[in-house]
Each structure stands twice: as C-alpha cells, then as structure tokens.
C-alpha cells in the first residue's frame, strides 16, 4: 500500500470571499448602516441619543427651577426658546434634561428582557418535552396581560421604584423574545453540527451556550432593536401616568401629562416638544432595526458576488440532502 501512504499534496489555500465578516453582528450592523433605510434610522437615533446625553450639560436654565414671571405657559421668546411650562419652568431645559433617564431605563429593561426571554426561548426549544411546555405556557400567561397593565399591577403593589419598573417592563418584553428565539432554535438544534457535539455527551447548557447561541446573533439583534422601541414607548407611557422619577425631575412622558392644559391657548411646545422627541426616538430605533432585519434576511445590502456564490453553494449542498 505504498501508493496510498504518500499523502496527497496540501491543497492550495481556499479562496477567501472578499470580506468574510468574522464578527457577524458587527458586519450586519455595518451593512445595515450603509443602506438608506439604516442611515436614516441610525441618524435619527443618534441625534436623539445625543440630545439626551449632552442635553443635561447645556441646559440654559435649571430644569427644575421656576424661571421668568412665574405665570404658566409663557409663549416661546428669545429668552425661553420653547417657552415655559405649567409651573413656569423653561421647557427647553426640561426637554434637554428629561430624556436620559428614560433612555437608560429602556436600555436596561431591553437587556433584561432579551436575556430572560432568550434564555427561556432557547432552553424551551432545545430541551423540548416538559420544559418546552412549562416555559412556553408561562410565556402565554405573561403575554395574556397587556404590557402596561402588567407593569402597573406590580408598580402599584410595590411602589414606583425605578429598578422595579425596569425589571417589570423587561419581564413583559421577554415573552416575545422567547417566542422568536424558540422557533429559531428549533431550526438550529436539528443541524448536524449540534448533533455532532451532542454525540460527545456534552451537557445541554454548554451545547446551548457555545453551539446554538453564536448562531442566533442575528435574530437576537433584530429582537433587541424591536424590544428597545417598545420599551421606550412603555417607559414613556408609564411616565405619563406618573410612574417614573418623582416630580419635579423632568421627564418627557410626564411633561406631556402635566402640560396638556396648555395645549389650548397656552404654550403648545411644552407638550409638542417631548412628544416629537419620543416619536423620533422610536421611529429611529424602529427604522434602524428594520434595516438590520432586511440585511439579515438578505433583502438588501449584501454584496452581489457573495450572494451569487452562496446560492451556488447552497444549490450544490441540496444534492446530498435527499438520501
């Protein structure tokens, strides 16, 4: 068998695709940011984020101090660019200062929701059987409550603590994440590379963490973006109802509530300014998420060559699937 013993020459190095992205999530985000949709979404998002972050340092007046004449709803003027609010505070200052807490809370609750929901969805799909039943029925129960009502329930029992709001809102986000990730995991856990690891007798937790999770980055990102949008809306809604930072701290959501008396005949901007900011923020996050999702599914933004060659490769692989 001497003829066999001679090892074949090492093959010439495989052709590398032009820019094979290694950090997939970064690559997807990058590609999304290059699409028109992504650029618009990201632009709006960054603009609002900048307002909330830099805002507190550039307020013309203290956001809680009563300024000016002491009369409510002064119209915009050179002195008070957006006029004053119901307690005669500077609207511009309050708007600049009133976003960051909500944004941080929304981010925190999104992270919480995605982690809890992701863990639940992945384990339900991977473990199957009774765990699938237990986890997904729990998810159904949580889903049966309207988000806001669920949050209000806990907040009214325990009290309007900020950490509680973060956790409760995050918790109400979890079911949606769980459902999406469950179906994605169902697909991936049947792949051969997962089976190959199972064949070694590796523990389920490790299989989920090191084999399945890295392949769920894209759906995770899309879900996180979507959940962030919803978190912002719910946070603003809770603030409107008075659950948030206690007054007199400025908050966009609560500003709409406290100043609505000024809508007719008073200073419209005290309501309109925070409304626009909340709307823009959600539109921005949603648009960018949409761009990410489109890139992830391959509707737009993928380099043509990679796509074509990929399709060819996929077509070839299906040959073997039939047996």
């Amino acid at each position: 068998m001497t003829a066999l013993a001679a090892p074949t020459e090492p093959q010439e190095p495989a052709v590398r695709s032009p820019r094979t992205p290694r950090r997939q999530w970064l690559a997807v985000l990058g590609a999304a940011a290059r699409t028109t949709r992504g650029r618009v979404g990201l632009g709006i998002m960054l603009f609002i984020a900048l307002v909330t972050v830099i805002g507190p340092f550039v307020t013309p007046y203290s956001s809680t101090a009563i300024v000016g004449s002491g009369l409510p709803f002064a119209k915009p003027s050179a002195q008070y660019l957006l006029g004053t609010d119901v307690l005669s505070r500077d609207v511009l200052s309050r708007v600049l200062d009133g976003g960051w807490v909500m944004l941080v809370m929304a981010l925190c609750s999104t992270v919480f929701g995605v982690v809890v929901g992701g863990a639940a969805g992945i384990s339900a799909a991977y473990l199957r059987g009774k765990w699938d039943g237990i986890i997904m029925r729990t998810v159904d129960v949580v889903l049966a409550f309207p988000q806001l009502v669920f949050a209000l329930l806990f907040v009214s029992i325990i009290g309007p603590k900020l950490w509680l709001i973060v956790i409760v809102v995050g918790f109400t986000q979890a079911p949606a994440v769980a459902r999406v990730l469950r179906s994605a995991t169902l697909d991936i856990s049947e792949r051969d590379y997962v089976k190959a690891i199972e064949l070694q007798g590796v523990k389920p937790v490790k299989v989920m963490w090191s084999e399945i999770l890295p392949n769920l980055i894209t759906p995770l990102m899309v879900e996180a973006g979507l959940r962030l949008t919803y978190s912002i809306v719910v946070m603003a809604g809770l603030a409107f109802l008075g659950f948030g930072q206690p007054p007199p701290s400025p908050q966009w959501g609560y500003m709409i509530n406290e100043n609505r008396g000024g809508l007719i005949g008073g200073n419209v901007w005290a309501v309109v300014a925070p409304t626009i900011l909340i709307a823009l923020l959600t539109i921005g996050t949603n648009t960018f998420t949409d761009a990410v999702a489109r890139v992830a599914i391959g509707i737009e933004g993928r380099p043509q060559e990679a796509l074509v060659l990929n399709e060819a490769a996929v077509a070839e692989t299906t040959l073997g699937e039939t047996a």
Partner: peptide
C-alpha cells in the same frame, strides 16, 4: 453526510 451542515459556521 453533509459537510456543509456538520461544521458550526461560527
């Protein structure tokens, strides 16, 4: 059977 699915792409 299928080397396209048996290696973890990540």
């Amino acid at each position: 059977q299928n080397p396209y699915t048996s290696l973890n792409p990540r």
